[in-house]
């Protein structure tokens, strides 16, 4: 069974970068595919990769990560004002465990999630 967990923006907005990354990684280690509202900052993305590498083991091979966000170039002022009022919640971040999510393809406005056949893998 595949579990998708949605993490709304209001659940992470008050968290520090450290706690945000820890929360995401803990969920992924529970074999859940996380759909997070909004994006990670560049330094949070590298922090997530670093911590993932520290956690790689026999059972945890790492993560697949993908961020998608709308092209708001023509609505810069509107987007800026909204982000000032309610925070930067544009976009969607998908993080999944590499043993379940084989590949995430960005197209660039849609996400294709290719998953491993777990049943077949268990039989091996």
């Amino acid at each position: 069974m595949l579990t998708l967990q949605f993490v709304p923006y209001n659940e992470i907005e008050s968290l520090s970068s450290n706690s945000k990354v820890r929360k995401l990684l803990n969920l992924v280690k529970e074999n859940k595919i996380v759909l997070m509202e909004g994006r990670l900052k560049p330094n949070e993305e590298t922090d997530l990769i670093q911590r993932t590498m520290e956690s790689v083991s026999k059972d945890f091979k790492g993560i697949e990560l993908c961020t998608i966000y709308p092209n708001n170039k023509n609505k810069f002022l509107k987007t800026f004002l909204i982000s000032l009022l309610i925070g930067d919640r544009t976009g969607l971040t998908v993080v999944g465990p590499a043993n379940i999510v084989k590949e995430i393809k960005r197209d660039p406005n849609k996400i294709l999630l290719l998953t491993e056949n777990l049943k077949r893998k268990r039989k091996k």
């Binding site: 590498m53 790689v56 091979k61 790492g62 993560i63 697949e64 990560l65 590499a98």
Partner: peptide, 9 residues
Amino acid sequence: TPGIATKID
């Protein structure tokens, strides 16, 4: 630098 990856198996 070594290649940056999100998974290593």
